[in-house]
Design a protein around this nucleic acid. Sequence first.
DNA 1: ATTCTGTCCTGTAGGC
DNA 2: TGCCTACAGGACAGAA
Length: 268
Amino acid sequence: MPELPEVETIARDLSKSLRHKIFSDVRIFDPFVLRQKSHDFIKRIKGKSFLAITRRGKALIIHLSSGEFLIVQLMMTGQLVFDGIKDQHTRVNFIFSDGTNLLYNDQRRFGQLRVVGNLGEVKHFALLGPEPLSDEFSVGYFREALSKTGRPIKNVLLDHTVVAGIGNIYACEILFRSRINPQKPACRISLNEANQIRQMIIKVLQEAIAYRGSSMRNYRDGKGQKGLFNERLSVYAREGMNCPRCQRPILRIVQSGRSTFYCGHCQK
DNA sequence: ATTCTGTCCTGTAGGC
DNA sequence: TGCCTACAGGACAGAA
């Protein structure tokens, strides 16, 4: 699924594409992706206009003129494509008064869409840790969070209650660039290493946003295009290929049921 | 209390 | 070719 850089790219694209649009109709092809009854979902969107789109963690928040919010969790394979062509994975089609549309496509159907009256009622947001690109994600906060647990650092980066928006691709890339072994217990990471990891979190995410994200399989931006960060990935999905730093083969292990890619020589 | 495992679902790649 | 297994960007309930 899209992680923070991909979701941010979609939000930026759609904030331009959807400016001044009015939702004139909503077509539900697969009610499974809704967290509420279709008629309620449609009723709360139809006739409203688009005000803004923001991001929290990996979730998109569309602000409606009614004061309500359309929340989209893309999960693994969700896509929001402006003025695309419907295919077999199109689950919802939002139609605007000028004849353009916004497709919600989702191959695996893990994604979820819903309309809420206020963001405070969304439990997921209440549990989320700070945005990594905000001042809230301070040196002191991050050091403190690492010191409190003996879990492997990779798992801590994936824990959205610690820091929001980092997924499997960027957790691996951040640790590679920080030269930290993904299995290292968080509480054994030194203050200097914690600073290094924190800076790499910020740097890698900003760089990935600048390159419009990474496309492994299904990710597409708001214009239906692939991201460009793939060729800049050093370790993710590169098992057996050469480490760009020492030329030794990249390793793959499983942590908490998820693949981790790293260099056993460079990352201590 | 904290942490991990299995599950949700569809599709594809690779081994034999 | 075809069948079978493993795996895929996330989140969460329920179990250890």
